[in-house]
Design a protein around this nucleic acid. Structure first.
Lengths: 350, 350
DNA sequence: CTTGCTTGATAATGCGCTTTATCAAGATTT
DNA sequence: AAATCTTGATAAAGCGCATTATCAAGCAAG
């Protein structure tokens, strides 16, 4: 039982050479200017083997200047109970890519501020700096911190589109706009002419993309844009009224912004006796889910979350490896259409 | 726009002090022999904030042997698709505890060996050493690596009981033995006298605990131990026969080792026309799950996974803080009984 | 016998931070 | 006025390893 691990110098001493020689031999850096004959090398290797020498990774990374860590920062808890299904696929992709590239992942867990929200800066210090670069994930409460990151040129990649006024940042995002256009196409192809948009009141980049896609999709199918068909409501109470109004306006189909909205909408429809998809076709602008009783599966598209996570890591690594600080890059990933049971041709008017 | 992260010396220069002063102030080591007036300290803190300084964990750990990181090592991928529901609660607890204690989490992702299995030692080097200590999780393929960890005195805590011949290690485990005893109690109280044990062929610590609990439970209820009632089978094909044999031996209840086994058992019973729980009461020695058609919920106990994760972190942190290398500790956590619908009094014989 | 090249290997420096002994200057006591 | 104490801070020595310029010795060529 040896009380302390052998150091580089221990090996050097045993082999009767300098520590530099040991380092060079062990790391196979014996090229060009440096020449060590085979027998000396063997002597070093034997000594290392005899002592069971293992280089200290900490000292190594200090000497090499990089620590091989990629940080993962989420604005909510990384393993949240409620967001579970949301974050998980991203992490899956991140982990896989990190593994492929030989990076380790650093999860920032010491940054909580008490109210559950997490902050990048604590006491004015950027905690992300622990790692070579970081992946950012989740809904930020303000753009200030991101702005600050940009200013101090810390390498990071966002998952999900983010726009920061005055500066460009790297991100990997789902191509919501195209996917929405495609969904409108499907509805139009089915024969729908008046397609409503039902969304939340929030304004985030990804929601804006969907709304943009909606307008593009209408235009692409030569359908007129009617502002009355765009319904950004959050209150449950007037939902029934809003729904009736839409139907009265001749709406036969609607795209719904998010899962939760679709969920409550579904219930409202049931209460009002509106048949899906007979009376109203629905397209979900996001990952479809089935109804509780298994009779209904949403039509929509699936968001390539795992891919987004992986690409974010690749993007970050690319930036880290680049000698010159290169331009930020954005990657839009294609969403896969999902055929469900909520789209049907419109009922022929009597 | 500064291209590289600020160093200790940058802060020192800006504050007009030495780097030693900065280090002392930032780490709150201003005690005893060292005196720095409040205003100077403030100056240092301001400078650090202005530059966004964060100590390099690598340099820190090289210099003082600690870096505030807790490693999380799993022998399978950390975010595995299939094991998802299994690992997740542990991570939840780990994250929460780490957050409470102010540690960051380091996920080892670069240690894969190609066959999907992960190894602690790569090229003979202990990758864990990057963090102060580590939480180990999952099913190890061999005890060699653990043994090696013990020998080099690296601090770690296993989640799940592990025994390593010749040395004692720290772990947090579910108290399977007690929970099993309690489940046997429930069956005995319901009137069962001949209770079978249905398990796998594997031999892991936690399975051994259940088998031990089974015997203890029988003894506690003054029931005889009949070796024929212990059925450690893995083959599906003879399951029906085994089941019939058990029933022929007068068995009216059984405890089942794991979920997957219970799942197939359930199907076998259906095929054979055995009613659960009328013909046979079942107790699951683990987290119960419902049947697909919602008609049946297993009786069993729930494993405090989140708590296990959290306690592991606390245990590890305790060991790290201890000046003297203290003894390994083991924590057994209580499992909560779950009342399902698979236990009923035995059918009264005609 | 110089000069110049090759071989074999190392001294020295740095990575960024921690830590302790030490010290100068002013304040206080004798 | 000399001795002592206190205050405020730092110089310097690592931690374990990587890297590069440099150097001594041997040898061939001029």
């Amino acid at each position: 039982m040896q009380t302390k691990r052998p150091r580089l110098t221990d090996v050097a001493q045993l082999a009767g050479v300098s520590s530099a020689t040991v380092s060079l031999v062990i790391n196979q850096r014996v090229t060009g200017n440096v020449r060590i004959p085979a027998e000396t090398q063997q002597r070093v290797l034997d000594a290392a083997a005899q002592l069971g020498y293992v280089a200290d990774p900490v000292a190594q990374s200090l000497a090499k200047g990089r620590n091989g860590l990629i940080g993962v920062f989420t604005f909510e808890a990384i393993f949240p109970v409620t967001q579970r299904d949301f974050y998980y696929p991203f992490l899956l992709g991140i982990e896989h890519a990190a593994e492929t590239l030989g990076y380790d992942l650093l999860l920032y867990t010491s940054t909580s501020v008490g109210d559950g929200r997490r902050r990048i800066y604590r006491d004015g210090r950027n905690r992300l700096r622990l790692a070579d670069g970081a992946i950012l994930l989740g809904t930020e409460s303000s753009k200030e911190e991101i702005q600050a990151l940009v200013e101090e040129a810390y390498p990071f990649v966002f998952i999900g589109r983010r726009e920061v006024p005055g500066s460009e940042i790297s991100y990997t995002a789902a191509d919501y706009a195209s996917a929405t256009v495609e969904l409108i196409d499907r509805l139009a192809t089915a024969g729908h002419r008046r397609i409503a948009y039902i969304g939340a009141e929030n304004v985030t980049e990804s929601l804006l993309d969907r709304r943009r896609g909606y307008k593009q999709g209408l235009a692409a199918n030569a359908l007129p844009l009617d502002a009355r068909l765009i319904c950004l409501c959050s209150g449950q109470k007037d939902e029934r009224i809003a729904l009736q109004t839409l139907l009265a306006l001749g709406v036969t189909a609607a795209v719904v912004e998010t899962g939760p909205i679709a969920y409550t909408l579904l219930h409202t429809c049931r209460e009002c006796g509106i048949q899906i998809p007979a009376d109203l076709s629905l397209g979900l602008l996001g990952d479809p889910f089935g109804d509780m009783d298994g009779t209904l599966n949403f039509s929509g598209f699936s968001i390539p979350r795992e891919e987004m996570g992986a690409q974010a890591v690749y993007l970050l690594a690319e930036g880290l490896d680049a000698k010159t600080s290169d331009q930020p890059r954005q990657i839009a990933l294609h969403c896969t259409p999902v055929t469900g049971s909520t789209i049907a041709p419109p009922r022929v008017h009597p």
